[in-house]
Every structure is written in structure tokens, then in C-alpha cells.
């Protein structure tokens, strides 16, 4: 599905990503972990075209998408969520998911102005279905900015799914959640988001990672230091040192 080849990116002389290689197969769920500032979010940004690459390539289903405009990359079937929550705060919950359909095939410029066609009604119903699935049906008409944080994360997930992406990039989907909320989120992703698609999940919470991922990839200072089955990776000494050791120290 996705292949990243010796990808490098630096900001003002500081290497955020160095020679990253990563291949994700169809239907795989890969966990991306590493300490803060290790380059996880930068990797998402480079894949989705937000940041240009310095060197290396990104391939989606074998096609080179390196340095294309973000909108074009996204239209090829990628959707993502954001670590620091990005929603349209001045729009309603329903609208936030509805807007994700704007660039889907069949919703061309001609359908932009026709609010009440059959196709449009079906798409509205689809949005309501998604909101129901993530548990936001009763907040449908609330202003998105007024939602509590866990609901905003759910909303981001629904919005990403509204594009029926082949590849889903989740950036800390349980960030800032309590253990109970995290467990709920993990179940939601496992039962509803994962089936039928490929996922990369950035997360610090190991219970979420272990509930979802068949494979773990560890970044540290912009380099990949481990890649493999979760049990094996988490026992590697440099991973423990880089990630868990520092994480424990932080806490």
C-alpha cells in the first residue's frame, strides 16, 4: 500500500527525519512510536505533502506521490487525524463530517450548489450514519468547538472515515484521554476504522497500540531504530532506553 524510501527532511539544520524506510502492506495496522520530537508527526506531514521532502520517495500503491500538492495526495485515498486536534470549530458536528465529502468522486463542482438532490440526501444520511457509529449522533447539531476533547477526537475520526480512505493515518487518537476513554477509542478503531483498510497509528499509550497493531515501528531522533512484531520490538534494549526509559523519566 505505502512505501517510504530513504526519506529525509530537516528543519533549519535539525534533521527531523533521516533515511527513513518503511513499507506497509495492504490491510496492515502499523503502530508508530517514539519519544516526543522523534519525527512521527513529521513523517505523516511528509507523506501527506504538508512538508516537502529533502530527499527520498513516497509511493502509494506503487505510484510516486512525493511532493505532490496535499489535496492531490489526499484524493488518492489517504485521510488523517491530527495530534493537536484540528476541527472546524465554527461549524456544527454534522457539517464537520459533511465537508470531508466535498472532493469525493461524484461531488464535483456541479453538485456543489444543488443542496437537495437524491445523491446529496444519501450523502447526508451517510454522515449521520458515521456520527451514529462514533457515538456523536445526539450531538449532531452542536457547534464542534463546544465538544469535550474525547468527542472532538471521535469527530476527527468520523471525518477521516467519511472519505473512505484506503490508508488511514491516526495521530495520537487517544491523546489526552483517560484510560476508560482510551479503551473505548481502541475498540472503536478496531471494530469500525480498521476493517478493510490499512492504518498507521501514532500513539504513546501502549494498551491502545497493543490492542490494534500487528507491527511496531520505533523512531528516535528522526531515525528508525526498530521495526517488527510488538513483543519483540518492545524488548529491544535501545527501544526501552530511547522510548520507555525517557517516558518513565518524564512521568
Amino acid at each position: 500500500m505505502l512505501r517510504v524510501e530513504s526519506l529525509s527532511r530537516s528543519f533549519g539544520g535539525v534533521a527531523a527525519l533521516e533515511e527513513i524506510d518503511l513499507a506497509v502492506a495492504d490491510g496492515e495496522v502499523v503502530g508508530l512510536i517514539g519519544p516526543n520530537g522523534s519525527g512521527k508527526t513529521t513523517l505523516f506531514n511528509v507523506i501527506t505533502g504538508v512538508h516537502p521532502v529533502d530527499s527520498g520517495r513516497v509511493l502509494l500503491r506503487g505510484e510516486d506521490i512525493t511532493d505532490q500538492a496535499p489535496a492531490r495526495i489526499v484524493r488518492r485515498g489517504i485521510a488523517r487525524t491530527f495530534q493537536n486536534l484540528r476541527i472546524f470549530r465554527r461549524m456544527s458536528v454534522h457539517e464537520n463530517v459533511w465537508v470531508a465529502q466535498h472532493s469525493l468522486p461524484g461531488v464535483g463542482p456541479m453538485t456543489l450548489l444543488s443542496g437537495r438532490s437524491a445523491g446529496e440526501r444519501a450523502r447526508r444520511a451517510e454522515v449521520d450514519g458515521l456520527l451514529d457509529a462514533v457515538g456523536l449522533a445526539d450531538r449532531r447539531d452542536a457547534l464542534a468547538g463546544s465538544l469535550p476533547l474525547p468527542d472532538q477526537r471521535r469527530l476527527e475520526l468520523a471525518r477521516a472515515l467519511a472519505r473512505s480512505p484506503a490508508l488511514l493515518l491516526l495521530d495520537e487518537p487517544a491523546g489526552g484521554m483517560t484510560p476508560a476513554e482510551t479503551a473505548e477509542m481502541a475498540a472503536l478503531i478496531r471494530d469500525f476504522a480498521v476493517p478493510g483498510r490499512t492504518c498507521i497509528v501514532i500513539e504513546h499509550k501502549l494498551d491502545l497500540i497493543s490492542a490494534l497493531c500487528q507491527r511496531l515501528c520505533v523512531l528516535n531522533f528522526g531515525r528508525k531504530i526498530a521495526d517488527g512484531a510488538p513483543q519483540e520490538v518492545l524488548q529491544q534494549s535501545d527501544v526501552l532506553e530511547a522510548y520507555l526509559g525517557r517516558d518513565a523519566g518524564d512521568a
Binding site: 528543519f11 533549519g12 508527526t41 506531514n45 504538508v50 512538508h51 491530527f82
Partner: peptide
């Protein structure tokens, strides 16, 4: 150029 880069990083 510098500012734009910083802004982009901060916002994502």
C-alpha cells in the same frame, strides 16, 4: 521563508 516554515510546523 523562515517564518512560513515555522508557522507550518507550529500549525500541524
Amino acid at each position: 521563508a523562515v517564518e512560513r516554515e515555522q508557522a507550518a510546523t507550529r500549525r500541524v
